[in-house]
Structure formats: C-alpha cells, structure tokens
Nucleic acid binder design. Sequence first.
DNA 1: TTAGGCCATTACGTAAGGGGAGAGTCAAAT
DNA 2: ATTTGACTCTCCCCTTACGTAATGGCCTAA
Lengths: 251, 251
Amino acid sequence: MEKYTVSLVARISGVTVRTLQHYDKIGLLKPAERARSGYRYYGKDELYRLQQILFFKELGFSLKKILHILDEPDFDLGKALEFQKNELQKRKARLDELLVTIDKTIKQIKKEKTMVTDKELYEGFSEEEISAWKKEIDEKYDQEVVAESYQNIKKMSKSDFNEVKEEQENVAKELALLMDQPVDSDKVQALIRRHHTNNERFYKTNAAVYKGLADMYVSDLRFTEFYDNYKPGLAKFIRDAMHHFADNSLK
Amino acid sequence: MEKYTVSLVARISGVTVRTLQHYDKIGLLKPAERARSGYRYYGKDELYRLQQILFFKELGFSLKKILHILDEPDFDLGKALEFQKNELQKRKARLDELLVTIDKTIKQIKKEKTMVTDKELYEGFSEEEISAWKKEIDEKYDQEVVAESYQNIKKMSKSDFNEVKEEQENVAKELALLMDQPVDSDKVQALIRRHHTNNERFYKTNAAVYKGLADMYVSDLRFTEFYDNYKPGLAKFIRDAMHHFADNSLK
DNA sequence: TTAGGCCATTACGTAAGGGGAGAGTCAAAT
DNA sequence: ATTTGACTCTCCCCTTACGTAATGGCCTAA
C-alpha cells in the first residue's frame, strides 16, 4: 500500500499541511498510520475520505457536522442538505439586500462630494442642520429625482430657503399639539398636506419617496431628536401621519 | 446632557452590553465619561457614532475597518465601498454556485440507489458499508422505484451477477485500448452501447441517470481508481464517452 | 441596612486554521 | 558514515466578534 506524507496529501488535495494536522486533532481525518517518529502516513482510504470532507466543506457544512455525516450511518443526509440549501438561500437574500444598500451608499457618497462645492447655499445654517438637510435630500432618493431637486434648490434664494425651513418647523410645532389625535384625523392630515406641499418646493415626492423621508425621521437619530425636541414621540407620530398621507392622498 | 448607561444604550441600539464593553476595549466606541466606580456613561454623540458603526457593520465591514472609516478623515470611503461591493458580489456568485451544487447533490442522493448496484458490481467495499447503504435506501427513498431495481437484482443468480460484472470489466479493458480515439468514434460508442445494455440488466437508465453514473466515475475516488487502474485517464474517457452516448443515443 | 438589580473586570471558549519556535527525522549526496 | 537540506513533529499564541460564566463592587428603593 502506498503511503502519503502530509505534504503529499496536501499537494494532491489542495489543503495545507496545517489543515491536515488540524483534521487529525479533531478526529475528522486520522492518518492510516503513525511512525515511531510521529510522522503521519495516509492511504487511499484517507484520500477518499478527504475528498468527501472537502466536498461537504464546499457546501458550507461545519467540520463538526461533516464528522457526523461521515461517521454516523443514521445521519439523515437528505434532510441536512435541504437545511443547508435553505441556509444558503437566506444568506444570498441577505447579500442581495446589502448590495442594494451599499449601492445607495456609494451614490450618496459621490453626491456628497459635489455638494461640498455648493456650500454657500447652506451658509447661515448650523452644522447639524446642513448635514441633516444633505441627508434628507441625498440619502433616500433616486438619482433623477435628486438631480431635479438640486435644480430647484440652486434656483432658490437664501430667503426662500429660510422660508421653507420655517414652514416645516411651524408644521412640526402644530403637529406636536395634535399628538393625542389619530394620525388619520382631518386636522393632522391637513398639516401633513402643508408639510408635503412645502417640501415640494425642494423636490417632487411620490408616495414611495415621501414614505422614505418619513422613515428617516425615526431611523436617523438626529432627525428623531430634532422632532422629539418639540415633544417626545413626535417623530414617530409624524412618520405615521406621513405614511397615511402617502397611502391615501398620493400615488 | 443625558447620560446613558450600558444597558440603556444596549436597549436603544439593540446590541448587547457585552458588545459595548468590547467596543470600548478595542477603542471603537468609548463612553463619554467614566464614573469613579468605573461605570460607563454615554451621550448623544456616542449614540450617533454607534448608529454609524452598526450601519457599516451591516455592510460587512470589520470593526477594525470601521474604526478607520470613522476616525481617519482621509480614509477613502468611496474606494472602500467599491471594494466591499466587489467582495459581496463575489460571495454572492459563490453562493449561487453552491446552490447549484447542492441541488445536484440532493437529486443525486435520491438516485443513489442506482449506484449501489454498481458498487456491488465493483467489489472492494466493506460489507458494513453496503448494508448501511441498503438500509438507507430502504428507509428513505421512493418505494416503487427502489422496488423495481431491487427486483432485478434479487432475481439474478450469483452467476448472472458475475456475468454482468465480467462484461463490464471486458468493456473497460477494450476501452482502455481505444483511448487515443475520439469519444464519439463508432468503435468507442459501440463499446459504450454494450456497457449501457449490460447495465440495464440491473436497472433502467435514461439519459440523465446514465450521465449521473458517468460523473461518478470521476467524482468518486474509488471508481476513478478502479478504472484508471487499467490505464490512467480511463475514467474520464469513459465518462465523456458515456455523456456523448447519453446525449445522442438515449432520450 | 439590606435586598435586588446593575455594573465591572478577568478570563476562557468559539471555527478553522495561520504562523512560528525549537527540535527531531528522512533521504540523498558527499 | 556523515552531512546537508528538506520535511515533519508538537506546542503555543493569534485571528473575529463577541458569549458566557465567575467573582465582586455599586446604586437605589423599601
């Protein structure tokens, strides 16, 4: 019978010597024989077993599970495979989400750079406010929509800008007084309509975009804080009201 | 200024206390203040920073990289994001491959009853191994299909069995002499036809099953060895020839 | 003052090896 | 027969991002 040393097995199979030692230690792949010197010698059977190990490893099984698969005849491989498939699909779905997020972020980053040159537009506003507005505009919107809103903003004078900002604050204050009412009440929705109309001086907002903006009110701590400053819970209240408005009065 | 204790921050952000302690230790998120008692107290700024940390973590960045992103103003975030995106895409592509593989494997498992007879054909497998497999098949797979193939085998006498085995070996030997010819040559395909006909004494094989069997000749080390014993490379040669046969003469 | 709930640090464990130190071994060339 | 150089051995620490005790101090309300 042939004897394969660790490095030979390593070369044949593509794993490292260290890996073979590791597999030996955890009992996943024991050499066929050990010399007095301690040297490991493998045979054909071990090569075949290693082939199986690597196959299941490819599929994402842990070494512990592989040990079970190979050493327990009662192991339900079919079930394990279905389970593993499910896991892989979940991971893939998650990766898809992340890719969407990262793409959005990349776009935002690029826009942020160009915005720096337009700094003058925001002069007179606090650092917080500026970054907040930048976020509001950039973060959640499609490229085209943003491009359009950009045009609008550039055409606005500073006083125009101030006007819009004040109006939004007024709406917020009034909403704070209506927090005991349901979000779909006429009064609340009327205020949201003001909010929406005012916001459109900046950029067009369809239902989805508007709801995205709403979500940001609670997902971005700085916005949340800004609104909850008027009254705790206001941010969430406005969000819900905006969602209702978007669902029923926009489309 | 508000002070947030560890558990408070934990509840707000959704991470565990241990995580906050960990982030403190590695310098990723230091509390705003430390009491004489050692208690950690966080402020708004830290909450916002934590929010950012969690965002980048979502994207799959390591904590070390996040530290760079947040603390080095010169850090090229755009580049890092592109890189990360690339990584995610690679992972996704890999997952796609694995999903294909695992699907194949699941299918193959169900067909494994076919292979068992083949294994019996080419001895060299331990008794326990075989009986374990039989048990597995009996317990888990389609009753009818299994029944059929078993019927065939059970009806065969030992000498019949040996006949089939010898014939397969003869075919293999003859094929070994034709390895310099293309797999689609008439001579080779004629031998494959013999192989296929002979094999059908065991069980019915449509194109897909036959190709599955072919693949096993190279994917299972024990089969590979058996055939390459006649001549190195024979296993692959037979596989290709069987594929050609299945594609052109079966369906 | 005491109970209970928070909080702290220390330290070991995880999965799958990587990397290196220090020492022994093998096989071929001298 | 010896030397050389490649190979191998066994520890042991390192990595990620925390989890999980163990042990003991701190805070606050009854």
